[in-house]
Amino acid sequence: MSPPRRLSDTAYLSQMLPLPLALPLAELEVGQHLYWHLGNLKIHGQVFLSSWVVIGALLALVFVGTRKLERDPRGLQNFLEFLWDYIRDLAREQIGEKAYRDWLPFIGTLFLFIFVSNWGGALLPWKLISLPHGELGAPTADINTTVALALLVSLAYFYAGLSRKGFRYFEYYVEPTPIMVPFKIVEDFTKPLSLSFRLFGNILADELVVAVLAFLVPLVVPLPAMLLGLFTSAIQALIFATLAAYYIGEAVHESHH
């Protein structure tokens, strides 16, 4: 493997772009990480740091918002109740009236973590904190995070189906005809693959587009791309949560013969 490149590396970019540019404003490092060694494992420290910030922010928000509960919700409690309603409607629509309560916390956690990660990566001024290697950003722009989330969804829907229906869960594989068995098995692999790649690709693409635009024209021009990035990253969080709920709903769904 060649050493990872920095997009801001003038030597590399001047080969591609005949521009006399070396702006310090636009820096994006792809494939550079702050490695922490844990036994034999090499882990990406910058992802851990930014996820901890996201988790801490979410915990603080929920803690402060539910400390003094009132019958007439105001301020933060009102906002949290709105979020709860939103997530409950999402889960109920996809999973169904009978089983959605068990999975509401899971779906809600996925949605909030991904949403706050995406927006936090775009909105917080991470550049103020400089690391020896790599850079802080959205935790979801690292493939490891998204693969972990997608595998969690896989485990969740298997568990949901098996715990609700027992071995009758595997009837799902031979419905409507046994010819479907290979396709349904392949589907079990493509579901986490597409879930993780969709989220990772979208978030990284947003960051790259903004970085490339900021490299070419550092002022004003990247703003619309940033706004579009905020919009798509919100939609991606919604899609991830919706699909997770849909897969769980598919697993617990009772077919009527």
Partner: peptide
Amino acid sequence: LLLSLAFMEALTIYGLVVALVLLFANPFA
């Protein structure tokens, strides 16, 4: 519409992921 547009966009993003792997983490380099 927005939800389905995002699903379609994901297909291009898969291509982009492949392109990024080729440019920044090329396995044959």
